[in-house]
Design a protein around this nucleic acid. Structure first.
Lengths: 234, 234
DNA sequence: GAGTGGTCTAGACCACGGA
DNA sequence: CCGTGGTCTAGACCACTCA
């Protein structure tokens, strides 16, 4: 199991501090040569490191050392920017598309709507320190938030909800699974199809208990660590 | 991107119901031939399916269709058996080792102990419908649970805590990240090094707010879906 | 003992990134 | 335009599973 040894040897170098976060690894051909193996085996080792969350790739640009993940507490309502800044990270959000459309299967399922109901669909990419880390799709009920698309929600939707519609979240139902980035999501996050991802689905309820919106977040899995505290009724 | 097409074609067969959960895929060489490609490319496609959580492998036995994941709510105190049975699954727990030892770095960090403090260490494997799905390591403070190892905790530790020590969890601090199964963990779960995993670390506090134990759970990532509800203070 | 999966080799071509 | 990563080929050997 040569590729495990190669992986361990690179892990050692990372932990010894010889490789810093965001730093690029040497070219695959050079690494392969230095470990006296072929590119195929070397890439096996790199994939392992990627799966462990220690390195990440940028499509056709190479492999880089992963920075510390962002702590994400799904039981809090803080928005992305606030959360990132509290952890000394620089957040950025890029709006990809915002449109009024008809609910697809996924949106209908999450929001309990009839298929083909009207719905707003907003796609955004979240950055941490200029690295794209998450692709977020939001589906929003237009009957609750009429003319939402006229506002500036590029940074925070929850701010717009609160300030212009007096809607605050009362609760969120969330689901976390692992999957991969594919197609346009992979491209938007500057990576290749098949990159491991953490998927967070959230269904948001307003103060009246109505399902008002949902978010599907695809995170590069090395960029996030879910952390929270659960208190139990005695 | 041939391997994405192969993957899609297998996904199609799964979703059409032609392949049932737990069913074995044909041999790699046969699949490769039927898609008119080499084993290397075919395995690329299989790894993608594994990363998506649609198939899983058993070491040297082959590839199988993943069953529905278990819903796991980290904000509840229910034990594994109860949780599994509530979802019509057959749980089983196998005790690997239970010993009194000195805290390693990980245990000391999680429980806030001095290095080399005395600690109990218990390793178990959790099964669902006879499939090994999680490797769980528990570190437990012997000053809170004296002579714990004399009891039968093979099934549920929390039951023993409650019945014999009158300790109930008041809260749990948890952390969820993705990583891989390596070495003996991979072996215990009947798979190979590098299999994607969901890691759940829990630090448990008793009714007095003391850190009494912690668990590190390595789940096959396709076997689990984290689901919960968060209520917000207004 | 046949067949299988796990691992590895030694190449190749292409399209894209960056200088 | 060079070097790079992304993808693919056509094999090979070994250790293990399972009939």
């Amino acid at each position: 199991m040569q590729y495990v040894k190669i992986k361990d040897s690179i892990v050692e170098q990372i932990e010894a501090g010889m490789l810093c976060p965001r730093q690029k690894l040497p070219a695959e051909r050079k690494l392969a040569e230095s470990f006296d193996t072929t590119r195929v085996t070397l890439r096996e080792a790199l994939s392992l490191l990627e799966a462990e969350g220690r390195i990440y790739r940028e499509d056709r640009r190479g492999w880089f050392i992963s920075p510390e993940p962002l702590c994400y507490d799904p039981t809090l309502t803080v928005n992305f920017s606030t959360m990132a800044q509290a952890q000394n990270r620089i957040p950025k959000t890029q709006l990809l598309t915002a449109k009024s459309t008809l609910a697809n299967k996924q949106a209908a399922r999450l929001l309990g709507l009839q298929p083909f109901s009207d719905i707003y669909c907003i796609d955004r990419v979240r950055y941490l320190d200029d690295r794209p880390v998450a692709y977020v799709t939001s589906y929003i009920r237009p009957d609750i938030f009429p003319n939402l698309l006229d506002f500036d929600f590029s940074d925070s939707l929850t701010d717009v909800y609160r300030e212009h519609f007096s809607v605050r979240y009362q609760k969120t139902r969330y689901r976390i699974v692992t999957s991969t980035l594919m197609g346009e999501m992979a491209q938007a996050l500057r990576t290749t199809s098949g990159t491991p991802a953490m998927v967070i689905e959230r269904i948001n309820y307003d103060q009246n208990g109505a399902q008002v919106s949902c978010d599907i977040e695809y995170w590069r899995h090395d960029a996030i660590s879910i952390e929270s505290v659960a208190e139990f009724a005695q």
